[in-house]
Design a protein around this nucleic acid. Structure first.
Lengths: 280, 280
DNA sequence: ATTAAAATGGAATTTTAATTCCAAAAGTGA
DNA sequence: TCACTTTTGGAATTAAAATTCCATTTTAAT
């Protein structure tokens, strides 16, 4: 016996991408019997349901028997529904590919050209921006702008990888004449004594969270200042502070991230505050 | 006693929306035991996976036991994983509208709202990144990496709106152990005397060009150091210095620009240099 | 109208996944 | 250090879903 494959579908003529699937569906739909055609039309109209439904649910929604769904899947070249669903599920997660491992692999395979790396970073940046749009809560953003507009002075806190964000905020506020202090965080001196009750603090930190940022934010909260947090996940320690949270899911490349989304969010905040104060 | 219910929580206090779920998660994450916290962080970072994965898959991905996943779900108020997944699946279909639709939705929150502005910056950022990909000269990029890899010390020069770029480069180089000096540009003190013939200078400036950046770059050239320029157009004064030019056409929103492209280019440079020196 | 082939619905079976349970390990406070 | 509680990992159990099977109906051809 040359080939001792057991289960996993030997001569597989199943579509490998959803694109291929729909192409095949288009060509074959005409020739399918009634119920199968009926289900095909349902799938064409509701492709998003396949990944998150059971056979029974789909059958029900398309007003067809579960066995018809089975036959349909086989007709399309799959071993069964499970295999087809796997395709739709993987296609979904491909929306945000695993860049971390992809880049790790890239690195292993030796010196890739800088242009290739640039392409990766550009792609990551675009994905981050797209993600930002879907995930930012407009209400929280509005609230953040309200709070910052009311503040006497805005304190900008964020170090290391977050420092580009705070320094850009510092530049923007200074340019518009909004009173703001960029906490430098050098020599481990935290200038918390400058924070007053009517001030606001913009704290920016990502995993691994900077102790000093958390510390200054906490002190600010104690003093009575409002806290606006730009961070990565809800489990961030900043959540404790009853801060207004603006979440940015940005991808890491090793220890580096394309800050595109964070900076876009930050500059939006700054310009909105400036506009509110009629400074621009 | 009217109701002697023990554990299995029929009076359902499960979150009804993913928003509520994440809010609860944020509040509760602190108090969870280790493994449950570990899984909480995984979920916070990969919320999209819940809808399309099995308990075993998630457990595996989060490096946790399936039973821990179960306990987590119950801790969050669900009867079990299935109930929690149902919530995520109902959210799933709403994520499908495409980019254009979401952009429109973000905008319709009112022309002057922060969300609308964010939509602008996101779009501008994406356009800038696209532009970057097509306009960067791969040869120049390669040459820049060569030069920087050979340099004894890399000087980072860029102020005001360019400072986020140089400060991020400073962070990245420091992290990788590449000798680099971030010129602070405060109090108009330029530290040109630190530049030595075998060094390289990364000069970042956009219109209107910063005098100090041009000045330091020129001095560096006189001393004999290599100059890598990140700037916006070929007519930039940095061209005179026979610098290796990396052009970034970044778009503005009002007086501010989404630095997405510049930062992506910068981090690419940094990582490429690190890789060349086998530091990552 | 008759018969063979194709298609269908629904129940029976198999497979896979969710959930519970419990013994072992890790903490905690006296 | 020792009893006591909490947490953990993994096997055992239960529930649910996928898949197959087959009797019945429909369709098409003569």
């Amino acid at each position: 016996m040359v080939d001792a494959k057991l289960d996993p579908a030997p001569a597989d003529n199943a579509p490998q991408t959803t694109d291929a699937f729909f192409k095949r569906l288009g060509g074959q739909a005409e020739t399918l019997p009634k119920r199968l055609r009926q289900f095909a039309e349902f799938i064409a109209a509701n492709p998003d349901r396949v990944a998150v439904s059971t056979v029974a649910e789909l059958a029900d929604a398309a007003d067809v028997q579960p066995s018809a769904v089975m036959r349909f899947c086989q007709e399309m070249g799959f071993s069964g529904f499970s295999q087809m669903q796997k395709l739709f599920r993987s296609d979904y997660s491909q929306k945000w590919p695993d860049y971390a491992t992809r880049l790790a692999k890239l690195r292993e395979h030796g010196a890739e050209s800088p242009s290739a790396l640039l392409a990766e970073f550009v792609e990551v940046g675009r994905a981050s921006l797209e993600n930002l749009m879907t995930n930012v809560d407009p209400a929280a953003l509005q609230q953040a702008v309200d709070v910052l507009s009311r503040a006497e002075t805005i304190h900008l806190v964020g170090f290391r990888r977050a420092f580009p964000v705070t320094s850009y905020l510092g530049y923007a506020f200074e340019k518009m004449g909004v009173p703001a202090i960029l906490h430098p965080g050098i020599a481990n001196i935290s200038m918390t004594h400058l924070i007053r009750p009517n001030d606001a603090v913009i704290a920016v930190t990502f995993t691994p969270y900077s102790e000093m940022t958390l510390d200054i934010a906490a002190k600010g909260r104690d003093i009575g200042a409002d806290i606006v947090a730009i961070t990565d996940v809800v489990t961030s320690p900043l959540a404790r502070l009853k801060a207004i949270q603006l979440l940015v899911a940005e991808l890491d490349v090793g220890d580096f991230r394309a800050l595109s989304a964070s900076l876009s969010l930050a500059i939006t905040l700054a310009v909105s505050v400036g506009a509110r104060k009629n400074l621009i």
